[in-house]
């Protein structure tokens, strides 16, 4: 997609389409709504709060404006943001906009023709569809925003050093990195989840339990590099695992990873959607991989010089052995 098209889709097409999804049903069914409409629902799906349709429109409209405004700002901004900023802001903005538009549309459509707001129910299929749709739209917005030009990161131009390897030599590198914050945070979430389990519904507690288990994946990572590429194994079981094949890697570099430049801590971004992803356990040294297709992957690890030398050596060894396949993967 050309830059101008990307900016138009992100700054005009998506905002207009999302706003229309919320505002058109409101305009169409405004006269069929009761004096007050249900605006809040309990976990069981029964209405437990109400507003006049006008106030509801203002609340949803304001959230829509903030979310879609973020997309418009990213699309129209002349300045170049740090790499992960535009996709993240666009994703959150598109999600907020779409969720608010969906709330407005579903509320208006499901409550038209009612006499009392207390009779309103929230159709679960519509809620699920609207959340899935909003997440999908957030993904699309992030993907589009990731193609916009961004600020170059320091150290990205340095010449890649490589290890001297004779044809009969084989190398393997492995290191682990631990962090305490995911475990502390995970434990805190677990405790809150257990407390919630006692006072509210079971599923909220289970969701919190799931999140705290996910957090432990970032308590320890093990990174390996060899002739097949780079792998990151998460958590104490070494599962799940993320591998990047040597065929995809154009160059490896040892870099200083600043969490603010990579979107924060944890697994940031997405190779598929945002064209960038980083596993960040702390600020400091790490490996940066530039892939042939322009995507970028980074992972924090101590002493990244050896794996970088290794990967660059294996890349050139592969290229020397098999120049045809290299050209193929470049295209």
């Amino acid at each position: 997609m050309k830059e101008k098209t990307s900016r138009t889709v992100l700054g005009v097409v998506i905002p207009v389409a999302v706003a229309a999804t919320g505002l058109v049903p409101y305009r169409a069914y405004r006269s069929d709504l009761p004096d007050r409409i249900a605006s809040h629902f309990g976990v069981s799906g029964r209405a437990d709060g109400s507003m006049t349709p006008e106030v509801f429109l203002v609340v949803c409209g304001a959230m829509m404006a903030i979310g879609l405004g973020a997309c418009v700002t990213v699309a129209l901004a002349r300045r170049r943001f740090q790499p992960m900023v535009a996709p993240s802001v666009s994703a959150v903005g598109a999600f907020l906009g779409a969720v608010s538009a969906g709330i407005l549309a579903i509320t208006v459509i499901s409550q038209r023709g009612l006499d009392r707001w207390q009779d309103a129910t929230l159709p679960p299929w519509a809620v699920i569809a609207w959340i899935i749709g909003s997440v999908a739209l957030a993904g699309v917005a992030a993907w589009i925003a990731s193609s916009l030009p961004c600020r170059r990161q320091a150290g990205a131009d340095a010449a890649p050093p490589a290890m001297d390897l004779s044809p009969t030599e084989r190398v393997f590198w492995s290191a682990t990195l631990s962090a305490r914050w995911p475990l502390v945070l995970g434990l805190a979430i677990l405790l809150v989840g257990l407390a919630l389990l006692l006072i509210t519904e079971l599923w909220i507690g289970l969701v919190m339990l799931g999140i705290s288990i996910l957090m432990t994946f970032f308590g320890r990572i093990r990174v390996t590099a060899d002739r097949s590429g780079l792998s990151v194994r998460y958590g104490f079981l070494g599962w799940p695992r993320r591998s990047i094949s040597i065929r995809r890697i154009a160059v490896a570099r040892a870099v200083d990873i600043r969490p603010t430049e990579w979107g924060g801590w944890g697994y940031r971004g997405s190779l598929a959607i945002m064209r960038r992803a980083a596993v960040v356990l702390r600020a400091g040294p790490g490996i940066r991989l530039d892939l042939h297709d322009g995507r970028v992957f980074a992972v924090t690890i101590d002493d990244p010089e050896d794996p970088v030398l290794l990967l660059n050596a294996e890349i050139s060894r592969r290229a020397a052995l098999n120049p045809a396949s290299e050209r193929e993967s470049m295209s």
């Binding site: 004779s166 009969t168 030599e169 084989r170 190398v171 393997f172 492995s174 290191a175 050896d306 290794l310």
Partner: peptide, 10 residues
């Protein structure tokens, strides 16, 4: 840690 072997080494 870096592991390195030479398959032709005696």
């Amino acid at each position: 840690m870096l592991w390195k072997i030479d398959t032709q080494s005696p």
